[in-house]
Design a protein around this nucleic acid. Structure first.
Lengths: 135, 135
DNA sequence: GTTGATCTTCACGTTAAGGTCAAATCCCGG
DNA sequence: CCGGGATTTGACCTTAACGTGAAGATCAAC
């Protein structure tokens, strides 16, 4: 019972996610998406939408399209293949996880730096304001 | 009293941070670093080391070199300029902060996805193992 | 039916972030 | 003083991720 739900044109999707159609086609070319076709025109379903969303998230995190494809392929692999495949999969997952952890660390450190810069910045400002008010 | 501390050759720095010397020169060309020169050869001090470290962190977070330079320039700006400059600075900082927040969100979401994939993966594995032990 | 808007494929252009030689130059231990 | 490893500048090369037309098909609306 494939309820199948709503479909989208490439332009709609582009608008929803604020990317160009070129980007979406490029992602297809790189194997991240594989919409159906009605004639020659692409027809996207919710599963494609989800993949696009995940892809854009990955991009924001600095993953390459190849890495993103890896994860996406794992994600909905109806080919839960051999033990070997599954173990490879866990390996990749552990790797991604480690990356995310490092990024978290980096972000926290970066936030601390920003705090410091901002503090000094505000100090300088209030000094100027103080002078201004006095004069 | 500029104690000045230790100095480093480009190769040392490259080794310490596991990048090539080309990268370090490129960062200089892009205005991220500005080591002294002893004759023609570059001499790096701890402040350069810190800048490089921050730069690499920024890179891991997906900042462009231009953005990184912006922040670095704010960071040690001995030209705590005009009110206008300082306000611009706070603006940029807020922007960076917002980006970091979104990345945190993205990371958490991504971690949840990985959890799910891994769970299904382990389930599939234990199923196979179970079968194997029975047979 | 024709006029826009949207879609298709094909192909070349662009930008960021370095890689990769090459040829000269520097510097240091013996 | 000198030989070999590290550095320097310069030039061109590469890859990823799209942008930017061109030229034609399609499809709804008037």
């Amino acid at each position: 019972m494939p309820v199948s739900g709503p479909t989208y044109a490439i332009g709609e999707l582009a608008q929803q996610f604020d990317v160009t159609t070129r980007t979406i086609r490029f992602y297809e070319q790189e194997g991240l998406l594989s919409p159906e076709r009605r004639g020659k025109t692409r027809v996207y379903r919710d599963k494609d939408r989800v993949r696009l969303k995940l892809a854009l998230r990955g991009k924001r995190l600095g993953f390459s399209l190849i890495e993103i494809r890896e994860v996406l392929d794992l994600y909905d692999d109806r080919n839960h293949g051999s033990v070997r495949q599954l173990e490879r999969m866990l390996e990749i997952l552990a790797d991604k996880r480690a990356n995310l952890e490092r990024q978290l660390e980096d972000i926290r450190a970066m936030q601390r730096e920003l705090d410091q810069v901002e503090a000094r910045c505000r100090a300088a400002l209030s000094e100027i304001d103080g002078d201004a008010e006095i004069s």
